[in-house]
Design a protein around this nucleic acid. Structure first.
Length: 148
DNA sequence: GCCAACGTTGGC
DNA sequence: GCCAACGTTGGC
């Protein structure tokens, strides 16, 4: 899962513990949260639009998908007036902090690693929630160093 | 700041 | 249903 650290960083998640992952406004990302995530699933936390961009930590899914309240809030940047409470268009999941990696695994390193060539991040980078295989997950954690 | 790659919108 | 115009993402 990607986040711009200026908006919400791994340090913010470490401080907050659990955070509703609001603001996802992409159908593919929504469907992944709805259909492919279970409580306890591990998450790679990725800093996008960062210097450097890369995987910075580990989180886990702390809830199943439920309606994102910001879509109904006219004062929110994520407000969507074509969504109704009867039939919510946008969902979110709660995300819980697990750990930082010992070092950032940067995007260039990921792109250059043959074991990671099939990652969605490499093949189709512009998606804020992406599936990661168990092998890819373990490989990146091994590169970055697991703190726990 | 630039721009490539997508995703969405809306006229027809 | 097609597709042009437009908006967003995010690396560089």
């Amino acid at each position: 899962m990607k986040s711009e650290p200026d908006a919400y960083s791994i340090d913010d998640l470490a401080r907050d513990g659990v955070e509703p992952w609001d603001g996802i406004r992409n159908y593919q990302a929504r469907n992944l949260m709805r259909d492919e995530m279970s409580v306890g699933d591990r998450v790679l936390f990725y800093h996008s639009n960062a210097k450097p961009p890369g995987v910075v930590g580990i989180a886990e899914i702390a809830s199943s998908a439920y309606p994102d309240p910001t879509q109904f809030d006219p004062d929110s940047a994520y407000f969507d007036d074509s969504s109704s409470p009867d039939d919510p268009r946008w969902l979110l999941v709660d995300v819980r902090y697990v750990s930082h990696l010992e070092r950032i695994v940067g995007l260039p390193e990921i792109k250059d690693d043959p074991a990671l060539a099939d990652m969605v991040l490499v093949k189709r980078s512009r998606l804020s929630v992406q599936p990661v295989s168990a092998e890819e997950f373990d490989h990146i954690v091994a590169l970055g160093g697991s703190v726990a």
